[in-house]
Amino acid sequence: MIQKGLKGIVAAETLISDIDGENGQLFYRGYEIRDITKKFSFEEAAYLLWFGHFPNEEQLNLLKYQLKQNRDLPENIRIILDLLPPSMDLMSVIRTAISAEGGNSDYGWKPTISQAIRLTALVPMIIAYRKRQLEGKEFVPHRSDLDFVANYLYTLNGKAPLAAHVEALETYMILTLEHGMNASTFSARVTASTESDLISAITAAIGTMKGPLHGGAPSGVIELLDEIALVGDAEKVIRAKLTRGEKLMGFGHRVYKTHDPRAISLKAKLLDMVGEDEWLDLAMEVEDTAINLLAELKPGRSLYTNVEFYAAAIMKAINMDLVLFTPTFTASRMVGWTAHVIEQAENNTIYRPEAKYIGDFK
């Protein structure tokens, strides 16, 4: 029996994460994601995925130091970024810059956590450099007193970010560090299975993430919120869309058959910001209205808010351009990709599925 797209086929064993779609749960190294977002920082969650346990204070400080030490963009990458045409999309820019990072001899078989840390540190700086470049502004050097997420927002905008914005984005980036054997992670593991280097595996993953069926962008959610804000009546807009048979962006998920645990965690963090930002207030209203109407008009479908819905609200609230959504997703997912590549290398078997020929014989 052929399973197109390998859906439902188990191709690897992993210690990194587990997704329980039926019960709406996501685990990193056995820890439920809701507990992680409540208690731990981006760096602590990254440490967990790379090393298999949470860090003590000394280990955490070392990881933060290593991430900060690897933020400086090499001269060759700066030159390449300056030469790329303005029309080149940001995901292709990231892929090209990371590929250029592989020009030195530091990357070989087997991949290491030190390499993973370096690539994770570089991606936000590549994004910020390109953004400022296209705006005709000088690149803002990183600040050693700022941790990963705060520094990312600082280098993007050139000013100290609001604490509430840092907390909201950090929660989102923790939630998107890792998500099982998705298309981009599979691409990375397939490339690594040939004993190619970490750079090759990560550029494969970035190229996969670029596809709209995977990384995508929450443009549909933004458009929905914009339309509701303009009309001023969430029920009217949503009911009309559902009656016309339109898909309601930001609701439902291929894997989760109930609540998306990432959406629940993100909403919990955003509840602290209600009343501070009109877009987050609107998102809360739209979610309640949409879920009630989906239950009324599509009974039995169990369609709930997915992580993309609240991610869109966050991007809108912190004034992050839509073109930065998938790149920001990529900046966090670097941790998961590299963790999987390292795991693949530890017990490697090359991936070699078969295809069934359905053409004629001459």
Rank of each mutant, 00 (worst) to 15 (best):
Q3T: 06
G5C: 06
L6D: 06
K7W: 04
Q25N: 08
R29F: 01
G30M: 04
I33L: 13
I36F: 02
K38P: 00
E44C: 10
A45Q: 02
L48R: 01
W50M: 00
H53A: 12
P55E: 04
K64E: 15
Q66A: 06
L67V: 03
Q69C: 07
D72R: 07
L73N: 12
I77T: 14
I80Q: 12
I80V: 11
L81N: 14
L81H: 12
L83T: 13
L84F: 01
M88D: 03
D89I: 02
S92F: 02
R95I: 01
S99A: 15
A100R: 12
G103F: 04
S105I: 03
K110G: 08
P111C: 11
M125K: 15
I127A: 05
I127E: 07
K137R: 15
F139H: 15
F139P: 11
S144G: 11
D145F: 00
T155P: 10
E170K: 13
L177Y: 04
S184Q: 01
S184M: 03
S187M: 08
S187P: 09
T191W: 01
A192S: 15
S193H: 07
D197L: 06
I206V: 15
I206M: 08
I206R: 09
L213F: 03
H214D: 10
G215Y: 05
S219L: 13
G220T: 04
I222E: 14
L224W: 02
L224E: 06
V231H: 07
A234Y: 02
T243F: 08
R244G: 00
F251R: 13
Y256E: 08
K257V: 01
A263V: 01
K267A: 11
A268W: 01
G275N: 12
V286D: 13
A290L: 03
A295V: 02
K298C: 00
S302Y: 14
S302N: 15
F309C: 00
F309P: 07
Y310A: 08
Y310L: 10
A312V: 02
K316L: 14
D321A: 07
P327F: 03
T328S: 14
F329C: 08
A331Y: 03
A331K: 05
R333N: 10
M334C: 06
V335H: 06
T338G: 09
A339S: 15
V341P: 09
E343I: 03
N347Y: 13
E354G: 10
A355Q: 10
A355I: 06
Y357I: 05
G359K: 15
